[in-house]
Each structure stands twice: as C-alpha cells, then as structure tokens.
Design a protein around this nucleic acid. Structure first.
Lengths: 233, 233
DNA sequence: AAGTGGTCTAGACCACGGA
DNA sequence: CCGTGGTCTAGACCACTTG
C-alpha cells in the first residue's frame, strides 16, 4: 500500500531541501531533471517545477535551461524587509503617532540628491523636512525631495496636516524603487530634532522612487538611536 | 483580427499592475475574480493566478480565499537583500580579500547572545572574533558564537586559515535564519580593529541561524565606516 | 453554505543555452 | 542541435473564510 494523499509542492520542496541539507545533493551538484524527480516521487512535473521555483527564489539552487538545476556552492542569505508607512510602523508598535512639519521649500537639488535620481543637471524640487514621533518622542526624521514636474499635486497638499510620506504612498504609485541602508553620526540639527546625543550612531534608510523614467521622490529617513530593522520571516 | 500571440503571465501582471497604477482598481478595491479576468483577457485562469501570485508577493495586492483580491490600501515597500560570504562580497567589488583571526575561545554566552538564540540559560560556546579586509583595509569585524553541541566539527577547523563565516556557510546548512540591521558607535577595540575614528557610526548586521530547534551560530558583523547595503533589484 | 483562491494533473509547445 | 527548464491550457477538486 502506498499513501493515498497526493504530494503537494511544499512536500516536494521539503524533500528536495532535506536532500540538500543532508548532502545527498552536495553544493555544486546537479540535481536530476524535474521530470525524473516527478517520476521518482510520483507527481506531475508541474508540481516539481513549483517546488524548484521556490528553492531557486530562496537562493538554495540555481536553475538554467539546458544546464539543469544546481545546488548553489556559495549560498547567499536572502532577507526581505517590509518598510511600511511610518505612521503604521509606530501604531503597530502600540505607540501614539505624531507628526511635525519642519520645513517646506523649493530648492535646487544638491549633488547627493542628483546622484540618487541619476540626474546630470540640478533641478528645482520641493524639499520637505519632517519629524515623526512615537509616544511624543522623536522616532524618524525625514529629509525628502519631491519632483514637482512628475508630482505637481504635492504643492496643493497641506503638509502640516498630512505627512508627505503618507500622501505619496497612498496617492503616487511608482514603478521602480531603490532602497539602501547605512549609518551616520548624529550632528547638528539632525541630533537636535531626534534628541540624540551628539556623536551617537543613527540608522538611515534611503528610498528613491520613479514612475517610468521620471523621478518622483527621494527620502533620507534617519531613525532615533536604538532603531533596529528586522527581516520578514 | 486579434493578436495571435498568447498572453504570458507577465503580460497579465503588467496589465493588472497598470490598472492599479492608473486607479482603475483603486487602493482598497476588490479586483474581479481570477476567472473573470482570465475571460476578459482571453487566457487560462492558471495564468491569471500566476500573475496575481507575483503581485501579492511584491506587496501590491492581498489575496484571501472567498475574500477575493484587494489592492493594498497601505502599500509597503518590500526590499530584498542578498548577504553573501564576506570574501565573495569583497572580491565582487574587485578588491583583494584578506582575513585575520583575532581570537578563538570557549566562553559562556552573555545575555545578549542568549537573547538572540532565545536561550533561557547560559551555555558554553566557541567565540570567534575575526577581521575581514579589502585591499588590506579593515572591511568587516565579526564577533561570532558557535554552538559546539550542534556543530562540534568547528573545533577541528583551522580558523586561522579559513574564516568561520566561510566554513559554516559552505558546510553547515540551516533551516531558519534571523537577520537584523542596526547602527552602533565606534568604541574601544571595535574602533581600533576597524581603524575607525572614535565615535563614528558603524553599520551592523546580526545574523543568527538554527537547524531545527538547535542553535548553530550567531554573528554580529560590524562594517567599516561608509558601508552601505543596497537592495536587490 | 457557498464563493474564491490554491493546487494538482496531463499534455503540449516554447525558448534558452550548452555541446 | 537538442536537452532542460519555462509556460500555457483545460479541467477537476480542495481548503479556507466569510456571510
């Protein structure tokens, strides 16, 4: 008698993964063709394909047409992070959210901002600086540039009431995003607004978006001391 | 005449995404059932399913059985990062890689390490401190704890020759990983080893792995000043 | 109870890329 | 060239979740 339950693609994935973990398929090895695995385990090739797709996505194997499926010799750790609207992030922590507009002016983009957008020449953009608070304590200081050519509507928004962060996320879909993380030292007004000791280390998220080839916005979000970003399971 | 090329799932995805971007389907809206979209576009339901799966993965829509597919009202930015072996990371930048073992001793785990593993009681583990260099300049300082119960083989490895990082990644598969990022201030020996000015901000990656329920290793990797982590496209 | 997404199957054809 | 993964189809059944 064999089991009467059918094999699901997660079962197949787990079996193949187990074989990789226990070195039946060692790093660098080529795995059997999908069809052979399907026959061996008694399921359709599509099911094996679905399983392999998942293993490839998580970085455990590499697949190429004709080349077959190989166990990665240098596995990478692949981690995914969700960056929600700041208000949501604060509220999800059970804290009270507040927001303060610091400044809102048209300015010429400095070199650093041009670089983030990949622009050759400087442009006039709306610069918005604002502070997000959790339980009335500084949480994130954002320094944002909005391209008023692609997003003229931002000029009509009352940024003292609604954060540009929230308005943009809700109203301005993007087609491409660049995200990068780094660390900076608390200095000058940044330290003041965040109530951070001078010289303390601050976590920084830079996020730049485009719609097609047109810039929308770039923001440098500096978090208060102690901030930690955790990968999604 | 209609087009004679068949619709691929990426075509379907792009069409649906376009409708979300142009507000045909607005945030919070419920999309038509997969089957209706399939009929409208003239393809199989499976194809629509594949497209929707991708949109759900990227965080644009949410799907529930019976509940249908909804456009997310609060879109999240979802970013994926690849964390390769340090040697590879250095070499991929076109730099020369070097490695120095700093210390290697059995020690009792402090509170912070117990917390990362979720342990109730302290344990004896192998603590390995090492420096990775790029073009002979400090690149990453790692402070690692290895559970010699789950990974006794580590005791036979000559860690002066091969970094624990590399040996573990190549030889010790894990079933669960926790990754988190933060920022710390350069102090004491950390600053010395990284040749970083006292008080400068340093980017930190913490990575902890388990096999089943058993701890394998946890490492705090502190990067030299200027380090930046960029999301995968 | 019933609607909707999730999955499996079997078969066909396509497209990339190694030999 | 031709082997291998990638995709599409049509149909069936399952499983979750909401009304």
């Amino acid at each position: 008698m064999t089991l009467d339950t059918r094999l699901s693609w997660t079962d197949v994935r787990d079996q193949v993964r187990a074989r990789i973990l226990n070195r039946t398929y060692a790093p660098g090895d080529r795995l059997p063709r999908d069809e052979d695995i399907a026959q061996e385990l008694g399921c359709a090739r599509t099911t094996v394909h679905r399983a392999m797709q998942d293993l490839a996505l998580s970085g455990l194997v590499e697949r190429k047409r004709k080349g077959g499926t190989h166990v990665r010799a240098d596995p990478v750790t692949r981690a995914t992070f969700d960056i929600p609207i700041t208000r949501r992030e604060v509220e999800d922590r059970g804290a009270k959210y507040n927001y303060q507009l610091i400044s809102r002016e048209m300015e010429q983009t400095p070199r650093a901002v041009m670089a983030r957008f990949g622009l050759q020449a400087p442009a006039q953009m709306l610069r918005v600086r604002a502070l997000h608070l959790a339980d009335n304590r500084p949480y994130i200081l954002e320094d944002r540039w909005v391209d008023t050519t692609s997003t003229p509507e931002i000029l009509k928004v009352d940024l003292a009431q609604h954060s540009a962060n929230e308005w943009l996320v809700r109203n301005k879909p993007y087609s491409r995003v660049d995200v990068r993380f780094s660390a900076i030292t608390a200095e000058g007004t940044t330290a003041e607004y965040l109530a951070a000791p001078l010289g303390s280390a601050l976590f920084v998220i830079e996020r730049t978006t485009w719609i097609g080839a047109d810039p929308i916005t770039t923001v440098q979000s500096v978090a208060a001391p102690g901030y930690q970003l955790v990968a999604q399971s």
